[in-house]
């Protein structure tokens, strides 16, 4: 158990860093960037759960990952439309 937690944390961290690099690299298309940023938030919420912070994990999953991604897509749809 004690070795499992840091291992999961490391794995999540690696996934978060890869997703963050995908989000900020300019070569990818914008929807992929936005989704990658949402993925960073989602993985961060799992990381918060491992850090014994269930309140923060729920907030990050509902607000940081869910609502923010949809806000981006709303604006993206408006900008693309014309």
């Amino acid at each position: 158990m004690s070795a499992l937690l840091p291992a999961m944390g490391l794995l999540l961290s690696a996934a978060m860093l890869v997703a963050a690099l995908m989000a900020v690299r300019g070569r990818r298309s914008l929807p992929i960037s936005i989704l990658a940023a949402g993925l960073v938030s989602l993985l961060a919420s799992v990381q918060f759960l491992l850090l014994a912070a269930p309140d923060v994990a729920m907030t990050e999953a509902a607000i940081g990952s869910g609502l923010t991604t949809f806000l981006f897509f709303f604006i993206l749809a408006r900008v693309r439309h014309d």
Binding site: V24, A53, E60
Partner: peptide, 19 residues
């Protein structure tokens, strides 16, 4: 829009440090 996406990534990082 890409700049704002990058800001939200940095925002997540700050939260992770604090927790």
């Amino acid at each position: 829009l890409r700049m704002i996406v990058a800001f939200s990534v940095a925002n997540t990082g700050v939260n992770l440090v604090l927790v």
